[in-house]
Write a protein that binds this DNA or RNA. Structure first.
Lengths: 209, 209
DNA sequence: ATCAACATACCAACTGGTCGGTTTGTCAAG
DNA sequence: CTTGACAAACCGACCAGTTGGTATGTTGAT
């Protein structure tokens, strides 16, 4: 008889789980090594699977990155929406709300997504793959503000105001990557609240629980 | 006699010019292909010189990137400072000033520098090489605001206010990479002027020419 | 003659894939 | 229940090209 051989690696059989595993591995490696350091080899090592498995589910690297990026944007949108709901229900105050929102934007995951977003401008293939996700994110981000606050301004001015709010958060997140002084975050939170939210009324939740 | 051979490539002999050439080639390739696509091969092709020449002047790729990044930051600082001077001398109005400042932040070169800035968080070597340039830029950016405008606020609050201004510009620049709606830039300019500069007085130039 | 400046060939490692083989789960037929 | 067929899922070896350098030789200015 042929001598016993080392058993080949077992092959899991759950496509959805594999896709999820790959997207999460990509996200972790993005945070760890940045967009420039995001390689297929690193992703499969992180996920503990083969390149063949990866390319079975995603035709190109860009497809995987786009899928992971789309998940990231949906996660942020969900987090923000939740924060808005909690504020409207009175579960948190306005300052705490701002603090949480700022933390979402200054998170490793958001910074990672910013890297992808900037890289997109020179990668037409990737840009096309993420176009829908970006549009949904933009609309969701605007809705987050308008669902949460009422502002006594004409619609176009209100839209610009909330775009400013989002840009301020992005700018702060960007600057946070170099580290912030100990109390600069807290100062930003208060200044943001004053500058952006002082004239905005919190909408009451339809059904406060 | 040995038959005529193709003459070896002529070797220019001007170190300063070569260094400048390499930094500018790196910057152009950064704008064209992003940080992830910024390779030695692309830089030397862009510059029309050899890798040997590059590595004679810069010990590693990161040294070149850091040098080019430092130049970029100094260029932005100079541009902004000039705009501030022109405003103070009455050569341009406040709205035009804001428009020019916004254009500086939304420029390809600034976006390229943002890519480097984000990548730095996962590259300790590069981070160390650019630390001084970043500190100088930060101080220069704050001085740009405080040299140009007087604000009736305590120093700490003024500092936070101007940090908000810069972050707003960064956030807008970031969002601009996806393209902006036709009049969104103009709306941003007006809203910025209203939100950030409405309570700031333009300092008069010491010697209006 | 000397050395900084520059060129070119070479290197090991890595890149995003491709490809042939193996494994696994499902289904239908007996 | 068993068996065989099938295709999705997965593996790992292979591929051509690229990466950031290194080593050696040549050139040009003094």
């Amino acid at each position: 008889m042929t001598p016993a051989k080392i058993a080949p690696r077992a092959q899991a059989r759950n496509a959805d789980q594999m896709v999820e595993l790959l997207k999460q591995a990509a996200t972790r490696q993005l945070i760890l090594n940045g967009f420039a350091g995001l390689s297929i080899q690193r992703i499969v090592s992180e996920a503990g699977v083969s390149k063949g498995a990866l390319f079975h589910h995603f035709p190109t690297k860009n497809h995987l990155i786009a899928a992971a990026f789309g998940d990231l944007l949906r996660t942020f949108e969900q987090e923000l929406s939740n924060l808005g709901c909690r504020l409207r229900k009175g579960e948190i105050g306005r300052t705490a709300f701002v603090r949480h929102v700022v933390e979402t934007f200054a998170s490793d995951m958001f910074i990672g997504s910013m890297e992808i977003a900037l890289a997109i401008r020179v990668e037409p293939d990737l840009s096309e793959l993420v176009a829908d996700s970006v549009n949904v994110w933009r609309a969701g981000l605007n809705a987050f503000w308008t669902d949460t606050f009422a502002l006594d301004l004409p619609p176009e001015e209100a839209r610009t105001h909330w775009a400013m709010a989002s840009n301020l958060l992005r700018g702060h997140a960007f600057t946070s990557t170099f580290g912030v002084e100990p109390d600069a975050r807290e100062k930003f939170i208060l200044a943001f609240e004053q500058l952006i939210l002082s004239k905005a009324a919190i909408k009451k939740a339809a059904n406060p629980t």
